[in-house]
Amino acid sequence: MTQELNYLKESPSQTAGPYVHIGLAPGAAGFDIYRQELGWDIAGPNAKGERIRVEGIVIDGTGSPIKDVLLEAWQANSEGIYAHPEHPGEVEDGFRGWGRVITDFATGEWGFDTVKPGPVMGRNGRMMAPHINLWVVARGINVGLNTRIYFEDEVEANAADPVMNIIEWERRRATLIAKRTERDGQIVYRFDVKMQGEDETVFFDI
């Protein structure tokens, strides 16, 4: 026998279910209850950097859009600073870096407006390419899925990114790179998430 370690165990995850909107986006469920819903303004009015929109769809193993997804984004500002007391540096007043968005009930499309994040210092002094951390929950997803959105126009930074480089299969890295387009004068990045199949998105155990 040995001494007991007595750590607690993390509460096991359960699916967010089909009615996640009631709790986290009640307006989308069809009713108005809170003074303000949380997570609709990621960057705030004072954020420096390039204003962008990120859009996509989440596709299941049959190739169909998933229409009851909730996604949360967590990102640094344009200078690579997270709005968090443990991250050195200051962010602009009103910059939160966090947002949540749901997919359209009819089409499965989602999208949010923000600023493009800057590179963030990673482990051991290795700079990480600009990226948005993404957390995906839905009915049928038992534990929320973590992935990262990288940007197509950051070719050199992406190639040097320490997280990209631990993905052994180079062709899978492409699943993390959002495609840059322009629409009505606005920069739009397209980031589709595939749950299964040949181009299954890389998901991380963080």
Partner: peptide, 9 residues
Amino acid sequence: TSVTRSPQY
């Protein structure tokens, strides 16, 4: 529902 919504890799 988890069958088609679960990563395979």
